[in-house]
Every structure is written in C-alpha cells, then in structure tokens.
C-alpha cells in the first residue's frame, strides 16, 4: 500500500508533470501517437470498409482480418518492426496502424451493413445515386458503429503505445520502463495508473459520443 501512496504522491506532484520528460509531456506524446495512428489507419480503413459495406464485396476479408489481428502479439509486431526500421517512432507507428486498421474496417463495414435494405431501397427509389445513398443515408445511420470501430482501434493503440518506449519512442511507457529498469515500483505504478486513466477517459468519451449520436439519430 505504501507504494500506492508514493505513486499517488508522484501523480499529484506538479513537479513530476512539468518539464520535457515529465508526465504532462509524456501524456501529450502518448495522445499524439494515438491520434496520428488513428488518422493514418482511418485514411486506409474507412474508405475500404465503407466500400465493402456498400458493395457487399470482400466481406469475408474484413471479417478474417479483424479475427487475425486479435491473434497477433503486439509486442512481437513492434519489436519486429523495430529491427527492420530501427529505433524511434516509425516502428511502433507501423504496429499501431496494423492493429488499428482491422477494427476501423470492421466498424465501417458493419455500420453500412446495419442500415436496413428497406431504407437504402427507399433512398434509391427517391432517385438517389449510389454515392448519395452512401453519403446521405448509409454513413449517417451507420455512424454509431463506425465510431465503435474507431473506439476499439483507439483502445488498442493507447494500450500498445505504452510499448512504444520499449523500442526507443516516447509516451507514458517511458516512465513505466524507467521505473522497471531502476526498480522504482512507485514510478512504474504512477505511469501505469496514468495510462489506465487515459484509456478509460478516452473510452468514456467514445461511449458518450456514441450515445449522443444514437439519440440524435433517433436509434434508441
């Protein structure tokens, strides 16, 4: 229990949050990694996922890839990438994208697919083109599930970003591994609690926006 008290002392001490290597800077780094990974992955996965959902083609591929990624050990992915591209942010970023793409893809296609065929047929009968059906009907109605995919991807990346420090990048993992190497359990603990807090806050934000959307769309 003493360790826990010391960890909280660290977390509540303004000193440990300030400076270039402080918790504040590391947390921003952690968030920046997460955001960058999500932007890159979304740029790849959203168009593909929407296309799969809209056309119904390649569905099996989307299902298999999201199953496969669950079986992929994240640490193996990061270390392998690090041996090929060297120490730094590139290796973890590759791993983040590999982990995030299937979740976003699955969310996008599931979102489009969840729209009832009667609704899309009605939209077509009104004279909408394929693009208009996608943009004005399928995407808005599928938005909660599309965001759900982004949510899963975010969770994966926030967790995995902790391992980025293992291959020489920054983020809250820095403090964690520093504590591990110097046998400083309170520091490890403080870093861990900070990561957990960050993950739960991000998840809660997604939960909130999904609920809000469902209500706005009248899906509840």
């Amino acid at each position: 229990m003493n360790h826990l008290v010391e960890a909280f002392d660290l977390l509540l001490d303004a000193e440990s949050w300030s400076g270039p290597g402080g918790f504040g800077a590391r947390m921003l780094e952690h968030l920046w990694y997460t955001a960058l990974a999500l932007i890159i992955s979304s740029a790849i996965a959203l168009p593909v996922g929407l296309a799969v959902g809209h056309t119904g083609r390649g569905r099996a591929l989307a299902v298999i890839s999201s199953g496969l990624v669950r079986a992929l050990p994240t640490l193996g992915l990061i270390t392998l990438a690090a041996l090929f591209v060297g120490i730094g942010l590139t290796a973890p970023m590759i791993a983040f994208v590999v982990l995030a793409v299937p979740s976003i893809l699955a969310g996008a296609y599931a979102g489009v697919e969840s729209v009832s065929p009667a609704t899309t047929d009605a939209a077509k009968a009104q004279g909408m083109s394929g693009w208009q059906v996608l943009i004005k009907v399928e995407i808005p109605l599928g938005l909660p599930l599309i965001i759900g995919g982004l949510r899963n991807a975010t969770l994966q990346v926030v967790a995995t970003a902790t391992l980025a420090a293992y291959v020489g990048a920054g983020g809250l993992g820095r403090q964690l591994f520093l504590g591990l190497r110097t046998q400083d359990y309170p520091l490890m603990l403080a870093a861990s609690l900070a990561v957990i807090l960050l993950a739960i806050i991000l998840d809660a934000c997604f939960e909130f926006s999904q609920r809000l959307l469902r209500r706005l769309l009248g899906l509840v």
Binding site: L155, L176, S192, L193, A199, I200
Partner: peptide, 16 residues
Amino acid sequence: LLYAIPSLPLFIVLPI
C-alpha cells in the same frame, strides 16, 4: 469496461 485497461499497466497495478 475492464477490457479498456491496457494490459501492461494492469500487470503492474494488480500486485498492489
């Protein structure tokens, strides 16, 4: 919600 907890931090916090 427990699934939202990143694995490495949980390995470290749990011993408490």
